[in-house]
Design a protein around this nucleic acid. Structure first.
Length: 434
RNA sequence: GUGGGCAUAGCUCAGUUGGUUAGAGCAGCAGACUGUGGCUCUGCGGGUCGCGGGUUCGAAUCCCGUUGCUCACCCCA
């Protein structure tokens, strides 16, 4: 008995059949175009990185539990990249002397994390990464916010369908320190508990804060902070920190028209963020979740060199993005492989068939021809099923008069045209069909 | 790592208090219609009922285990 292997892809990974690939390609092509319109340049990097690259700054949870790791034949510990930011920081640090800053770079790598798959989360996803390196200017933040709006707009999303929520770790930490008397070493942990504020019952969160060693006065103060708006947070944070906060300065000065809502509960899990952090949320009541996010990381290149190169950027994964688009009816329809089929009516018409196909391909059209001579009816049926819009039919009767038949598969109409006029005739059909 | 739901034809799913030969729609193939598709009609092929064990005269159905998928939790890009 033959034991067949499973045809299912490994848990949490996906096969992209042509129809899904077409959707993905269309969506991401639009995003690439918008990103490049801001002058960003595309780069790429290795799938494998030393584990140490993530141990330093990404956070212990990610490294200890979610990393796909392996050991090479030389005993080196490697990981499938779980995110791109450390890699790009490495590349920037390595090439800093030759680069012109600010460097606007983007990429579209596949990233891996070992975890239980669920809605919006898989083990391999494709994530667009957009980063600006070497700019201390607040305009870097503004540019990122505006770019995000333009990217989502290019996919047909309306501003009401999503929301950029932002926080600033400088500001949040200051408010926790001065208002809630949280010691510096607990700031990260407290922030992470507060991140659950909207998800958990009030008493659960308060209890978790107590478990971090906070006294009741601090816990009450933390609760009060979660309810404060931007002005309220600024009022209780140390004035010098408010002045230092990049996000506070941007919002106070009205530097951007891009809609950005201050949210004291935006935390983000990665340790390397230093000030501005943000997440883009779906406003669809069926899918109230974060689609993607990012932030400013001013010390990441310090892993590699003395040169201080601040960065800000975000990663946008395909899984949550597609959920967002589908939820709003914005996912594009797949494109057909071939627009035109050229069909022979007898083996004798093979040569003119090849000539016609070549002529159409030179005009930039996607063209197929059948490999075997079968019934015309079946070929037409197949062509329709594959999504072709036009059939060029080559019969000996017409050929004798120097003509070919161009059939509009959608309208079921056809006409004879001279062999030289075939391209124009096909284009004319495609024009009114699309 | 924890918990819920699901698993029957290529796909989506029916399947009665356990009852003998497990069905439908769609898809596929063939034909009606060998130089014109979508519609219609006719016929055909296709199932170890996820896997293993148990209960029973008898299991797709009940029980136990296991694997897979999925949703949620943990955590989070």
């Amino acid at each position: 008995m033959t034991q067949f292997l499973s045809t299912a892809p490994y848990k949490g990974t996906r096969d992209f059949l042509p129809a899904e690939m077409s959707v993905r390609t269309q969506v991401f092509s639009k995003l690439y175009a918008v990103i490049e319109s801001y002058g960003f340049e595309r780069y790429d990097g290795p799938l494998l990185e030393p584990v140490e690259l993530y141990e330093a700054k990404s956070g212990s949870e990610l490294v200890n539990e979610q990393l796909f790791t392996l050991t090479d034949q030389g005993g080196r510990r490697l990981a499938l990249r779980p995110e791109m930011t450390p890699s790009v920081a490495r590349m920037i640090a390595a090439n800093a002397p030759q680069l012109a800053f600010p460097a606007r770079w983007y990429s579209h790598p596949n990233c891996h994390r070992y975890e239980r798959p669920q809605k919006g989360r898989v083990r391999e996803h494709w994530q667009i990464n957009v980063d600006v390196f070497g700019s201390e200017s607040l305009e870097a933040e503004v540019e990122i916010f505006e770019l995000i709006h333009d990217m989502l707009c290019s996919l047909g999303a309306k501003p009401s369908q999503y929301e950029i929520r932002a926080n600033d770790r400088v500001l949040a930490h200051s408010a926790l320190r001065t208002y809630a008397r949280i010691p510096d070493e607990s700031l990260g942990k407290v922030m992470r508990v507060l991140d659950r504020w909207e998800k958990y019952p009030r008493d659960v969160v308060l209890k978790q804060l107590g478990e971090l060693g906070l006294d009741s006065a601090s816990i009450t103060a933390c609760e009060e902070l979660t309810a404060k708006d931007f002005a309220g947070i600024c009022a209780v944070a140390a004035p010098e920190d408010v002045a230092k906060s990049r996000l506070a300065t941007i919002l106070n000065s009205g530097m951007t028209n891009a809609a950005v809502r201050f949210d004291p509960l935006i935390v983000r899990g990665l340790d390397y963020y230093t000030s501005t952090v943000f997440e883009v949320f779906d406003t669809n009541p069926e899918n109230r979740r974060s689609i993607f996010g990012g932030g400013r990381y001013d010390n990441l290149t310090a892993l590699f060199s003395k040169q201080r190169i601040p960065g800000i950027g975000f990663g946008m994964g395909d899984v949550t993005l597609m959920d967002f688009l589908s939820g709003h009816g914005l996912a594009p329809a797949p494109n057909a492989g071939a627009q035109v089929v050229v069909l022979p009516l007898s083996p004798a018409t093979r040569t003119p068939l090849k000539e016609a196909a070549a002529r159409l391909r030179r005009a930039g059209l996607r063209v197929t021809t059948p490999h075997e001579d079968t019934q015309l009816g079946k070929e037409l049926k197949k062509a329709d099923k594959c999504g072709a819009k036009v059939a060029v039919i080559i019969g000996e009767d017409e050929l004798a008069r120097g003509k070919l038949v161009v059939r509009d598969l959608r309208r079921s109409t056809q006409r004879e045209v001279a062999r030289e006029d075939i391209t124009a005739a096909v284009l004319a059909v495609l024009e009114h069909v699309d």
